[in-house]
Design a protein around this nucleic acid. Structure first.
Length: 493
RNA sequence: GGUUUCGUGGCCGAGUGGUUAGGCAGGGGUCUGCAAAACCUCUUACAGCGGUUCGAAUCCGCUCGAAACCUCCA
């Protein structure tokens, strides 16, 4: 491996590969986004942070990235059986709302959470329901190429037929014979020739509300098809990076490969990247396990598993302290450790401007910078890069304590190191002073000052007590001494 | 049952053949009126057993344990 070049772990080859875009300097990147039927949880933050990091890093390296992240608002069924209800439609039925209301509401929430985490918006954020025509078109092509069949107004992908010429299972490492023989029998799958087949288009039952006209009657698209159709539309038949959570590896991404090959007769994706799962007490966070924490709960602290609220940047930093391909276990202890670590880095950066430059110093900032790049080039090894930032912080603290020295150039370089990695690439947003005054804090401060003042008055140290009163007056804070207490108010002028 | 991944010090988490990961917590010290912060320092781990090797946390085998996917999930 050349440490000066970016290597990414490609799930397809199970190896770290040198990243070489198909058409430099352009890079096409597609990431599976959320199905917007409920609030985003911690699990949604992982791919968002992971691929935001990649997006930022690629841009930093000078690539012109087109980042597409979809919103799934149709076709994602509760189960794979024919009676499986659409997730959006189900939520709409339960809450007595239009499906579009569900979609818009949770899309808005998703964007709010992503903004809080300082996740950059993708360049294109297509909705599945806005690309029905493209999906029908793709299903037709697959049908024309004889890799699909129609049954009662539904179109199914013929996996066994596809596997005669191509390799179904190349991404997930699954063996098709095993799948055919071992996959559990599901009820209501009578239409499929084989249980491994999957739907490209499904006929809508009379009560199904989300429905579109197609050459095969009214229906709706299968879940896997949207990603193939929309990535092709915006990134072309072949593009560089496809990302998503590891749980989508099979069947979702395996199906995407099959669909693209069946329609275009070539593979669409050069690098498949997958982030690992988030666990809570060693177990995956999942809807069915009922152990998930939404991002809103996480930020407000309103969840029984949380001892306190956590800031969005704590979450972001916590995730970056683990490699994206490792599982990451949540606990209050681990989060508080991350919170403290982040504070340490932030404080060191703040101290930087208070250090008087010296004439000599031995710190090699360029070496640190180089090590940070090497870490990121090695499949985005953020924990290692962060450890080098902690090195920088220790040197800054030491210079601040006058235990070592930094020269003017090094201070400049350290500032730049922080700006480049901490701010630009890791996307840590340094908190700016709160715009709204904190009432509890303000009250507490003034009460404390008045206590000092009253103690001074009791001891007849009037120069101290008058000093406090005059200074507060200058700030438009009026003090009224009465027999028993001292009242205060902010003058409205 | 099948496929895959993993098991690192009190906790989180890098490392994948030989030199300190890092953070948090804890002990000791410096500093300090006290405290906090900071700095220095200590606790030196790699599931178990066996093998390969001059040398293994790192490669191989077995055992034990955990998780993910195969069914909705980021």
């Amino acid at each position: 491996m050349n440490p000066k070049k970016l290597y990414l772990y490609n799930t397809l080859s199970r190896k770290k590969e040198l990243f070489e875009p198909l058409n430099p300097p352009y890079v096409g990147m597609y990431v599976c986004g959320p199905t917007v039927y409920s609030d985003a949880h911690l699990g949604h933050a992982r791919p968002a942070v992971t691929f935001d990091l990649l997006y930022r890093y690629l841009a930093h390296l000078g690539y012109k990235v087109r980042y597409v992240r979809n919103i799934t608002d149709v076709g994602h069924l509760e189960s794979d059986s024919d009676e499986g209800e659409d997730k959006i439609a189900k939520k709409a039925r339960l809450e007595k709302l239009e499906p579009m209301e569900i979609v818009q509401n949770y899309t808005r929430h998703y964007h709010q959470d992503m903004d809080a985490l300082n996740i950059l918006s993708p360049n294109i954020e297509p909705f599945a329901s806005g690309h029905i025509i493209e999906q029908i078109e793709m299903a037709k092509e697959i049908l024309d190429n004889d890799y699909a069949y129609e049954v009662n107004g539904s179109i199914y992908f013929d996996v066994l037929k596809y596997n005669e010429k191509h390799h179904y299972g190349k991404l997930s490492g699954r063996v098709i014979e095993d799948m055919v023989s071992s996959t559990r029998e599901l009820e209501g799958q009578d239409e499929k020739k084989n249980n491994v087949d999957f739907a490209l288009w499904k006929k809508a039952s009379p009560q199904h509300i989300m429905r579109w006209a197609s050459p095969w009657g009214e229906g709706f698209p299968g879940w896997h098809l949207e990603c193939s159709a929309m990535s092709r539309k915006y990134l072309g038949e072949q593009f560089d990076i496809h990302g998503g959570g590891m749980d989508l590896l099979f069947p979702h991404h395996e199906c995407e490969i099959a669909q693209s090959v069946a329609a275009n007769e070539k593979e669409a994706v050069k690098y498949w990247l997958h982030n690992n799962m988030i666990t809570i007490n060693g177990q995956k966070m999942g809807k069915s396990l009922d152990n998930f924490i939404t991002l809103k709960q996480f930020f407000s602290g309103e969840h029984e598993a949380l001892k306190k609220p956590y800031k969005p940047m704590t979450l972001r930093f916590f995730m970056l302290q683990a490699h994206y391909r490792s599982t990451l276990d949540f606990s209050n202890e681990a989060l508080m450790a991350a919170e403290k670590g982040l504070e340490r880095l932030l404080e060191a950066k703040n101290k930087l401007k208070n250090i008087k430059p010296s004439n000599k110093s031995s710190l090699d900032v360029n070496k640190l910078k180089k090590k940070c790049y090497e870490a990121l080039n090695d499949d985005m090894n953020t924990p290692v890069a962060i450890s080098h930032l902690f090195d920088a912080a220790r040197n800054i603290n030491s210079a601040f304590d006058n235990k070592s020295t930094l020269d003017a150039q090094q201070i400049k370089d350290l500032n730049q190191l922080y700006d480049t990695f901490f701010t630009d690439i890791f996307g840590i947003k340094v908190p700016i002073i709160q715009s709204e005054p904190d009432e509890t804090l303000l009250n507490g401060l003034i009460e404390t000052l008045l206590e000092i003042r009253n103690n001074a008055r009791k001891q007849k140290k009037f120069e101290t007590s008058d000093f406090i009163r005059d200074k507060l007056n200058e700030l438009n804070i009026e003090i009224k001494d009465t027999k028993n207490e001292t009242a205060w108010n902010i003058k409205k002028s």
